[in-house]
Nucleic acid binder design. Structure first.
Length: 325
DNA sequence: AAGATCGTCAACCGCCATTAA
DNA sequence: ATTAATGGCGGTTGACGATCT
């Protein structure tokens, strides 16, 4: 932490003297307490002034950051749920590194946290695969492997692990699925478009529902959302987590933290939130979605876990897959 | 057991947009 | 209209604990 405690050159002016006294680095409990109590009494804003009046030898920016990212009461801590991870992946595919915008759709999560998640978990996988995290190939891998796994995980958790598969079954299913994938990919031309081709092949399949259940594809992911919406049609509309609304973009309402998702073709717009996704995961219909059958069928429960790096990508097998590209 | 390496995440930095004077 | 202050955002850094060798 020594690098944070640089002392500035002494100066006669008052401002510079203040600067010299500014603290950096990790916040102490006392500082946290000062900030919390001051904001409780006077509210947020005017951060530079706040810092001075609260007796904090910190920059206004530092105070703001500490409050927004850590001290604010509604800041959620702990591991991101599969639902949250799913949303991050989906929203990032749509908006890119617009962390703040993405964070608006994950109540209690900060842009910093989401950014850290992306860099430490998602980009790491891209690095291991030696693929650019922004490449189409990687995005397709995310859609075809990661997101369905998250949905599966959501479903599994919603079932309270009542139904458990044996490890042998899981390993066998995944192995079989991978073999299928590899066969498909091997049949494609060279280059990083292999997975894309695979996905296209899926999309060109005559069985559109099968396709939808196999990949969560980005520009096409909205179609899958529509599939979810279709699924919702089977439910009682009063209690359905989806609502049809006229919004043309992702949006969030203060009242319900509800996500309005519209596809690019201006058809159905689904409104859903974390709870919604949870509910969906518990439906048998989504079960099909979350448990892809056929060409992209992967069934390893641990692919998506609290520790992403552990079993999520099954790196060796993805390596094989990548090498076939 | 100890050093090296890795992963996570809080915090900082610089830039830009907005607002107030 | 201009300028300084402030707020917000995305990128980056570095401390520290965990894991590996």
């Amino acid at each position: 932490m020594s690098s944070f405690n640089k002392s500035s050159v002494s100066c006669s002016s008052e401002d510079d003297a203040d600067q010299q006294q500014l603290r950096r680095g990790p916040w102490t409990l006392d500082e946290d307490s000062l900030l919390i109590h001051y904001i409780a009494r006077h509210g947020e804003g005017r951060w530079n002034l706040l810092a001075k009046r609260a007796g904090l030898r910190r920059t206004g920016k530092s105070c703001r950051l500490r409050w927004l990212n850590y001290l604010k009461p509604d800041v959620k801590r702990g591991n991101l749920t599969p639902q949250e991870q799913f949303l991050i992946l989906e929203l990032h595919s749509k908006w890119g590194n617009r962390w703040s915008k993405i964070a608006q759709h994950l109540p209690g999560r900060t842009d910093n946290e989401i950014k850290n998640y992306w860099r430490t978990r998602v980009q790491k996988q891209a690095r291991h695969l030696k693929i650019d995290a922004n490449s189409t190939a990687f995005q397709n891998i995310v859609r075809c492997f990661w997101m369905p796994r998250l949905l599966q995980k959501m479903e599994n958790s919603s079932e309270n692990s009542a139904v458990s598969q044996s490890l042998d079954q899981v390993a066998s299913a995944q192995h079989q699925a991978l073999m299928t994938l590899q066969q498909q990919v091997a049949g494609q031309g060279p280059g990083s478009e292999a997975v894309q081709n695979l996905e296209n092949q899926e999309q060109n399949s005559s069985d559109s529902e099968h396709c939808a259940s196999s990949c969560v594809s980005s520009s096409e992911s909205m179609n899958n959302y529509n599939n979810i919406s279709q699924i919702s049609q089977f439910a009682d509309y009063q209690s359905s987590p989806f609502q049809i609304v006229g919004n043309s973009d992702y949006n969030v309402t203060d009242a319900k933290d509800c996500y309005y998702v519209n596809d690019d073709n201006n058809s159905n717009t689904g409104c859903y939130d974390m709870e919604t996704i949870n509910q969906l995961a518990s439906t048998s219909a989504l079960g099909d979605f979350a448990n892809p059958v056929g060409d992209c069928h992967m069934a390893e429960n641990n692919w998506v876990g609290d520790g992403f790096a552990d079993g999520l990508w099954n790196m060796g097998e993805l390596w094989d897959l990548r090498n076939l590209q």
